[in-house]
Structures are given as C-alpha cells and as structure tokens.
Amino acid sequence: MLQYLIIHLDDTSVSYCHYDNYKKERNLISLDDLKAGILFAMKENLMIQMVYPDYQLPKEYEATIETIDHVKIKSISQSINANVVVIDSWNDLESLKADKEIAYVLRTDKASFFECYSRLLPILNEVSRLNVVIKNIETFTDDDFAKYKTILGEIASKVKDCYENNHAVQLNLLTDRMMLDKMNNCNAGWESITLAPDGRFYVCPAFYLAGENEDFGIGKAKFSVGDLQTGLDIKNPQLYRLDHAPLCRKCDAYQCRRCVWLNRKTTYEVNTPSHEQCVVAHIERNASRDLLASIRTIGTFLPDKEIKEIDYLDPFDVKEEY
C-alpha cells in the first residue's frame, strides 16, 4: 500500500540512493504542481519526503512546503533544517559536525569505499544514524565480495566498540538487519512514489532522471506512472510488491534495498535482483549476524532476535529449495 510521496523538487535535487543525478540545469517544479502534489498526498494519506536541490528555494516554495508535515532530504551544502543529509564526498564526511537528530547518507562508489572506509570509523562515534550507499554495486566481482566481507568485519568491530560505550549507533550495512523481523526494502512503486518537476509520477527519482534515450536493453529507462491531472497509473503494479518477487519473498536479508531501479538495469525485471545485489546484501546480513553475536559478548542484547547461519550468498543458487 502506498505510504510515501517523494517530491523531487528540482531536476538538480540531490540523489540519496544508488542512482546518479547528472542534471546540471535547474528546473524547479511549478508551484501549482507542488501544491497539487501536497494535496494528493493529503488525500491519499501519504507521508511526504521533499528532496531538495543545492540552492535556496524561493520563499513561496518554502512556505508551501511548510503547510504539510514532511521530511527534508538535503545535500550537506544546504543542510539547514534537514532531516536527512546527503554526503557525496569523503572529505565532507570527515569534516562533518554531526547532529544526532539528523540521519546521514554517505554516497560512495565501490573503489572509494574500499579505499576510504577507515575514514568512516571515527564518524560512527558522532552520528545516530549513517546510511552508506554504494552506488555501483552492480560492478562487484568475486574479489570485491571478499574485500567487502573483510571490511564489514573491521567496521563491525568499531560498531561493537560504540555499543560497548553505550552509543547504539545505527549503520545501515550492519545494524539494520539485527533489528528487523521482516523485509524492509525500498519498495518504490509499491509503498512510495515520486513526483517529478514535470508534474508526472515516477516509480522513483531514478526513473525520472534517466535520459530520454536511455535504454537498458528492452525499452526506455525513463517512464512515468501517471500525472497529477489523471492520477497514478502503474502498469503491472503487483511486480513492485514483495510477494511478486520470487527470489526476495522468502529471503531473510531483510535490510536489502531491493532496488527496483538496479533490478531493471541488471536483469530487465523490476522484481528480480542481480547476483551482485543479492550477494552484497547477504554479506551484510552475515556480518550483522557476527556483529549481533559479538555485541552479546558484552551483555544482553536483542535477546529475541536470531539470524540463522546459512550456506549461500545468492538465493538464486538455492532456488530449488525455496
């Protein structure tokens, strides 16, 4: 069931997820569309997430936005009053003056993560929550998987120290799975939908930001799923739901993003994750399992949670048993 409306305020609004936003020209949503979007969300009982561009919005926009309860997602350079702050560079992360009320998102590519992950460790003392988004997980190789596992082990050691010092930091890669009892994925197209500056709805910002001629192989990457005038029109909406994802519906890598954009890009189907997405999620899952055991050596911790030992990293490899 739809629960969230993401309003991508401008073509240059910050990316907070796997996709990149290469758009440089400002193109602000019209005030009428913004108002109509807010009205739509009110009528449909949707929580709004405003995704801001890297410049100050006109006053009438700010005033309109403040007419409704919402979450502000902003880049670090415009982070005043933000609820979620997106950091795109390791230098910005290091110089961060963290606010415990804010959730931080660090977007990085794989190579930088492997090179710079140790710079992340001190920050864990400072933040309440940090989401690390590795942008190009579709490029992971077997060697990368091994490296990722080792690195998560090192970071987990730091997270354990935080817990030992009574700082229950949340790091999506390691702590989310410890807390979860069921899938908690992105669920774009099912639980959230995006309103873009063109007044049309998209499954998520990535589907709006794709180039007009971008094609992952079997059709246009950019497609809308309705507009403010005629409402939502999601074709094959069931395919965004967990129960229509054969590999995911029985999976217990509950923290996985299950990114439908990456799915579409790598396997052509929005309901089917790539090998790389599955393995990365399972390496995180297993690292969470180890972390849980490690924290329990300090004292009682989440006694009702159990993460089972499994002998696979990609559910596809054991699909016959599924």
């Binding site: 192989g217 590999l247 790598t266 396997t267 052509y268 189907e269």
Partner: peptide, 22 residues
C-alpha cells in the same frame, strides 16, 4: 524489443537469465 542475454564475443550475462529461471 529483443531480449538479448549476451553475444558470442562477451558471453552470456547471467543476470539477464535470472527472471526466467525464477
């Protein structure tokens, strides 16, 4: 559009077969 899963030069992209096999 054709559902191409690879070619004789680059081989088969196994990710493109996952939807069929699940």
């Amino acid at each position: 559009k054709a559902w191409i899963i690879g070619n004789i030069h680059d081989g088969i992209d196994k990710n493109k077969l996952r939807p069929f096999l699940t």
